[in-house]
Write a protein that binds this DNA or RNA. Sequence first.
DNA 1: TCGTTCACG
DNA 2: GACGTACGTGAACGAG
Length: 955
Amino acid sequence: MSDKQHLYLVDGSAYIFRAYHRLPPLTNPEGTPVGAVYGYTTMLWKLADDLDKADGPTHLAVVLDKSSHSFRNELYADYKAHRPDPPEDLVPQFPLIRDATRAFSLPVIEEPDVEADDMIASYAKAAIRKGWDVTIVSSDKDLMQLIGQCGEGDLEPGVTTGGCIDMLDTMKDARIGREDVVAKFGVPPEQLGDVLALMGDSVDNIPGIYGIGPKTASKLIADNGSLAAALDSAADMKASKLKERLLEGREMAELSRVLVELKCDCPLPVALEDMKLDGIPPEPLAAFLETHGFHSLLKRLGAGAGSPDRPTNLNPAKQSQQGAAAAPAGNAQPLPEWPAVDREAYECVQTLERLEHWTARAQAAHMIAIDTETSSLDPMRAELTGISLALGPNDACYVPLGHGGSDMFAERPQQVDRAAAIAVLKPMLESDAVLKVGQNIKYDITILSRCAGIVVAPVEDTMIMSFDLDAGRSLDGIGGGHGMDELAQRHLGHTTLTFKDVCGTGKKAIPFGEVPLDKATQYAAEDADVTWRLYQVLKRRLPEEGATRVYERVDRPLIPVVAGMEREGIKVDKAALAKLSETFAETTAGLETEIHELAGEPFTIGSPKQLGDVLFDKLGHKGGKKGKSGQYSTDQSVLERLAGEGAPIANKVLEWRQLTKLRSTYTEALQAAINPETGRVHTSYSLVGAQTGRLSSTDPNLQNIPIRTEIGREIRKAFVPEDGNVLLAADYSQIELRLAAHMADVPQLKEAFASGEDIHSRTAQEMFGTVDRDTRARAKTVNFAILYGISRWGLGGRLGIEADEAQDIIDTYFQRFPGIRNYIHETLESVRAKGYSETLFGRKTWFPRINSKQQNERQGSERAAINAPIQGTSADIIKRAMARMTPALLEAGLPDVRMLLQVHDELVFELPEGDVEAASPVIARVMAEAALPAVELTVPLGIEIGHGPSWDDAH
DNA sequence: TCGTTCACG
DNA sequence: GACGTACGTGAACGAG
């Protein structure tokens, strides 16, 4: 069936409206807004690029609305009336859509007095009659009526089977088929018109019946089979609002039915055969991309074949009022005039003389970009394979140190003697007079320290610079990450070689040490070159955008500190973990049998899908709720409810879940994570992991070791000190609430913290006038709700009350603590205007969706924006404490105290038992004073300290 | 690869 | 009228 034709019909007009709302207000070099056009262009690109894919187009055309007038206006004067004028910066983009399509040399269909929907319907029908498949690129629900049609009974002569129609929503990258229509509307596409006629459409001003929405409409149609039958059924209904509405709305519904009907017999101005997609001539496209400043696309075009990845590197828009929030990450200044990256220009350093030449130049330049190549991503296990250096654009080299050695090379390529090379590099890499710049240089610090005994300092990190400038600054299709490939694309318009390009992927992947030197040099030196360039770009932005303080005073000093913590690692008691694992396994096996017996059949308990079916369909428990995936939810809260309703299986499943989780995520994984060389577990902290400025921990994650349940705490007991030592844990007590009290200026809460009162009790007193277990618990929930950005639904859910009651509680809270209301208000106003929130130390977090027209997106951003300054300030404070900790301990004569872990508001140390008494006050003081002198808090920071023979005992 | 669930602050 | 509903993470698992 290789000759199966597949026509794609793009609903261009509809697309551009959606693109407009979801993409930043970019302008082209002439100042014309082109954000929506850019989105449209990338979409066309992607479609055209799918040409060779199984489901891809063989034919493609774009259909546009030429005029808003059609036969429907004759039927109903108000049709599409009240439709607001398009935003003024969208208007000039309409003609550009046509230009963009022509630039791709694709046919454009636009006919006067015919709506795009009807034209699409007519073409789609014509194509399926020929046996072609059709994909409508749109998300218009009217067009969903066409889905699944196959031209049955109306085929052209000689055609045996009709084609099939489906839809593609490129915004969500989702194909929409018959089942999706049924899932969304409760009826198949053939009956969708009836549903639409009942519910109406406020955008097109199709009246429908007032008071009937999608749910009611689809139920009526599903129950009665047709619009006419549904309307007739009203007569037999008992008196109700619905009955009245149906009786009164009959005419409107019948009119609406005609309005939503698609006209399928429009004359076709372009023949189907002429829509053949046959390669896209590059010249007109290049000219178009050039005109509008779509440089990354232009670059991609130049790069030729290959599927383009995410679009980036648009010319940043001039900052308009709302543009400030939505502008993509980018440098405001024009790029320096650098030559394009030339991988052939790099040197492979194979003699000591050449290496000495490079280090001498580095000493003279006082700055160098470096990058290490290794055998593994885990810096605690990796071997050093080579190091690359860059001193300017295209002025870069690669020094291979560990290439060859396996049979893939006939002989080991010529390389500088490793020990000699290290001896030459060491003075430069350790010199105070030479700044070492890296992309995630923490990794290189660890490698060079472990493998070469080099203590790299001082350092700069382009990844962290990017984070401090642009955290959170991402939009659809415009990446917001801080990885080198993405940064190179965004800031330099350059596509780097990827690791996969040189080493392959999956089973065929080879270690970097087996990559031939010429290719290895291109890849490795490019990374250093790009890092050098990125540093120039980002360094200039730091002061311009007010990010210097947080970078210099909070994040940069932390790099060697965190590298040291990772290197320390923590000891775990392997035998204890193994024993726990076994116990868990036995208990789990028993539970599994019991659960299967209760269910009456064996099934995969770990599959939420199967579990949901067993609980709600097979066992017939009530109250099953399906989420958007069409699957029952079986999470903890649901199971707890079932258990309360007397379902014995629910508790068993809960226990099973807990034990399997603990076993697979902790007791098994932690044993495997023990480093054979050190006998300890070394996590990796990401300094750019959380948008708010928190660290995150991976491989393994040591920031989510159980503590809340008795059985989980058994795992914490397996974290132990070396003989003669203890573990000490110091944590900030209620730091986020303290910061909220300070930042929102709430006198009662500040007093309570100052006098060491229980904060939730104080809140209960203020809110409910009395303190008991219940009011304290509720006050605690409310306090957290505030920190997380409150909504009455969310709070209601947590407290098990109606949203109205929750709203009353929120009102009371605001009344008692008006500072909180002001804080929320002012924070949101500021984020809406500036596009970012700020911590007390000036850390910015961007919220590009804060002014979104999509309510849920906007509200989600609002909640995150309320939380970010608080969570972020807390992160800043503990980071400052960490950076000061080792010097403070050294000064206090405590060199044997080692900081091992950070868990957001807690620091874990390992120290000789005899040092506890001396170290505790030093640690507590450094933590308590960490905000000073930059910020003087009006609440004290309380520190709780404990120590013992395990992490659990330290609490 | 995605969605779900659940471990932490 | 419907949507999804507390903020920030990472890991494991099943299923497509």
